[in-house]
Simulated assay, not measured.
Amino acid sequence: MSEVVLHYTRAGKVESLHRADIAFVNLKGEIVDAVGDAKRPMFWRSAAKPFQVLPFVRDGGVEHFGLTQEELAFLVSSHSGEKEHVALAQSVLAKVGLTPEALACGAAKPMSGKAATAVLLAGEKFQAVHNACSGKHSGMLALAMLRGLSIDGYTLAEHAVQQVMHQEVAAAVGLKQDEVELGIDGCGVPVFWLPLDRMAYGYARLAKPEGAGWGADEAAITAVRNAMVAYPHAVAGTGRIDTVLMELTKGRLVAKIGSEAVYCLADTKSGLGITFKVEDGSYRSINPMVIGVLKRAGLLTKEEEAALWAKYPPVLKNHRGDIIGTIEVLF
């Protein structure tokens, strides 16, 4: 059962709270710590992206199309829709012989408010390239082009692109394909339903691929990890905790958000993987939760923890900037 993990206070009184489940898993797939139900099943959402790109990387797609390491990082992104992200989408699609019109993720407002304002001030409309999942969709289209498959219907579960990604995601977490059920993500493609501890195990293996049983996939998953930590801005964006965390720790930690307050991260040194799901799906809970789980796991230096709290202060402010409450991490 989910446990209360955050209190939001006003005048010293608890006004709101969040419940969550957290799994801490080692490279053997063992649960070494937990808060709530570490085996709670949940949709992996965008945190599955590093594993969805694996067949493209393993099949030599990066080299075949001449993609850069930054472009590879973009393929696993949930990006903010900044001009750099739009340029990456356009570049990847051009290299695989397509245009942005091929993207079936739907037009979306950039996650970055600044980027969204810039689009509107330019008198333009939000497009599919602004969609936070346009990187993943670019990767799916690239895989179809690499394998000589039709891009028509590439978002459908029965399409060969989605079938191989379903297989890859299941294998990455030590499950059979039929043990990972499907739903439909916000961007229109299949999304995966599996236990939190399996997600954390996947991230443990992503963070420290050597000796993690990847076999022929080890070089590919290592390339994905290296791209993420080398280009963290491509993975998320300005001010986003995924980007800040990977920059602050100089790639020692790898991190990736998923929608509805699913979050995955791992330590490249020890191979410890961590996944949490905040029960109410609140986006505001992400930053204090990330700092809290890393502190509990002993994965931050005092200086790193102080820098993160300075970046994301655990306080509530009113419209004048007065501090009127606190955010308390309870675990």
Rank of each mutant, 00 (worst) to 15 (best):
L120A: 10
G139I: 03
Y154C: 12
S134V: 12
S134P: 05
G139R: 03
A132N: 15
Q163I: 14
S138K: 11
F126A: 02
A132H: 10
S134Q: 05
L175R: 11
V129M: 03
S138E: 13
L175E: 10
A171Q: 12
Q162S: 07
G135L: 09
L141N: 05
V119F: 10
Q163H: 03
M145G: 06
A170R: 04
S138H: 09
L156N: 13
A132E: 09
S134M: 10
M165V: 15
K136S: 05
L146F: 07
V164Y: 00
K136N: 10
L120P: 01
V129P: 03
G123C: 06
L149T: 06
V119C: 11
G174Y: 12
D152L: 12
S134F: 05
G174C: 14
G135W: 07
G123L: 05
L141A: 08
M145A: 13
G139D: 01
I151F: 05
H130W: 04
G153C: 14
G139S: 04
M140V: 11
M165I: 14
I151M: 09
E158G: 02
G123P: 06
V164E: 02
S150K: 04
A172M: 05
L156S: 12
K136M: 09
L156E: 15
L156D: 13
A172L: 08
Q127H: 01
L143C: 09
E168K: 04
Q162G: 02
G139V: 03
F126T: 04
A170T: 04
A160K: 15
E158I: 07
G139L: 02
V169Y: 04
S138T: 14
G153M: 12
H159D: 03
F126H: 04
S138C: 15
V161Y: 06
A157F: 11
H166V: 13
H159N: 07
H137V: 13
F126Q: 04
